[in-house]
Amino acid sequence: MNEICREHGINQPTFYKWKSKYVGLDVQQLPKMKELQKCIRVVGLTPDQIPNFFRKAA
């Protein structure tokens, strides 16, 4: 684990954060996830507002 993190220039907490965030996603789903994150930043939502935003939009 240490070697992988060192090779990619990240620390272990970052690795585990990314792992928990992206586990189970297919390669095809990653661009969609990044686009969604970009849209959320543009709209200016905080993490606690995101579930409510999608409930209202549905």
Score class of each variant (00 low, 15 high):
residue 41 R to M: 14
residue 12 Q to L: 12
residue 27 V to M: 05
residue 12 Q to N: 05
residue 2 N to Q: 15
residue 25 L to D: 00
residue 13 P to L: 07
residue 36 L to D: 08
residue 22 Y to Q: 07
residue 1 M to I: 14
residue 52 N to R: 07
residue 20 S to Y: 07
residue 34 K to R: 11
residue 43 V to D: 04
residue 45 L to K: 05
residue 36 L to P: 01
residue 41 R to N: 15
residue 6 R to H: 13
residue 1 M to G: 15
residue 4 I to C: 11
residue 29 Q to Y: 01
residue 4 I to S: 09
residue 25 L to G: 00
residue 57 A to N: 06
residue 32 K to Q: 12
residue 43 V to R: 11
residue 16 Y to R: 02
residue 3 E to A: 13
residue 41 R to K: 15
residue 4 I to V: 10
residue 48 D to Y: 10
residue 29 Q to V: 01
residue 56 K to Y: 04
residue 30 L to C: 03
residue 55 R to T: 02
residue 55 R to M: 04
residue 4 I to G: 08
residue 3 E to F: 08
residue 3 E to T: 13
residue 13 P to N: 10
residue 30 L to P: 02
residue 28 Q to M: 02
residue 44 G to D: 15
residue 31 P to E: 02
residue 58 A to H: 06
residue 6 R to E: 15
residue 11 N to E: 09
residue 43 V to W: 05
residue 50 I to W: 03
residue 52 N to W: 02
residue 55 R to I: 00
residue 28 Q to R: 03
residue 58 A to Y: 08
residue 26 D to G: 06
residue 56 K to Q: 07
residue 33 M to H: 12
residue 27 V to P: 00
residue 16 Y to E: 06
residue 57 A to G: 08
residue 44 G to K: 15
residue 42 V to I: 15
residue 4 I to M: 10
residue 39 C to H: 13
residue 16 Y to S: 09
residue 25 L to F: 08
residue 4 I to Y: 12
residue 52 N to F: 05
residue 56 K to G: 01
residue 24 G to Q: 03
residue 33 M to D: 12
residue 24 G to T: 02
residue 5 C to F: 08
residue 21 K to L: 14
residue 51 P to L: 02
residue 40 I to E: 07
residue 26 D to H: 06
residue 14 T to W: 07
residue 11 N to L: 03
residue 42 V to T: 15
residue 20 S to T: 10
residue 21 K to P: 04
residue 53 F to T: 00
residue 21 K to N: 09
residue 44 G to Y: 14
residue 53 F to R: 04
residue 52 N to K: 06
residue 45 L to M: 06
residue 38 K to Y: 11
residue 37 Q to Y: 10
residue 35 E to N: 04
residue 35 E to S: 11
residue 34 K to L: 11
residue 34 K to H: 05
residue 56 K to R: 11
residue 44 G to P: 13
residue 33 M to I: 10
residue 5 C to I: 08
residue 37 Q to W: 07
residue 52 N to Y: 04
residue 4 I to P: 03
residue 29 Q to P: 00
residue 27 V to G: 00
residue 46 T to A: 08
residue 26 D to P: 01
residue 21 K to A: 14
residue 15 F to V: 11
residue 11 N to R: 08
residue 36 L to M: 12
residue 41 R to T: 13
residue 49 Q to N: 04
residue 12 Q to W: 09
residue 19 K to F: 09
residue 10 I to N: 01
residue 36 L to R: 13
residue 56 K to D: 03
residue 17 K to H: 09
residue 41 R to E: 14
residue 48 D to N: 07
residue 42 V to D: 15
residue 29 Q to A: 08
residue 10 I to L: 09
residue 25 L to E: 05
residue 11 N to K: 07
residue 13 P to M: 03
residue 47 P to Y: 00
residue 20 S to E: 09
residue 10 I to S: 04
residue 42 V to N: 15
residue 36 L to Q: 09
residue 9 G to H: 04
residue 28 Q to L: 06
residue 13 P to R: 11
residue 34 K to C: 01
residue 35 E to G: 03
residue 20 S to V: 05
residue 14 T to E: 11
residue 52 N to T: 05
residue 55 R to D: 01
residue 32 K to M: 08
residue 20 S to C: 10
residue 12 Q to K: 15
residue 6 R to D: 14
residue 18 W to C: 05
residue 4 I to K: 10
residue 33 M to R: 13
residue 24 G to R: 00
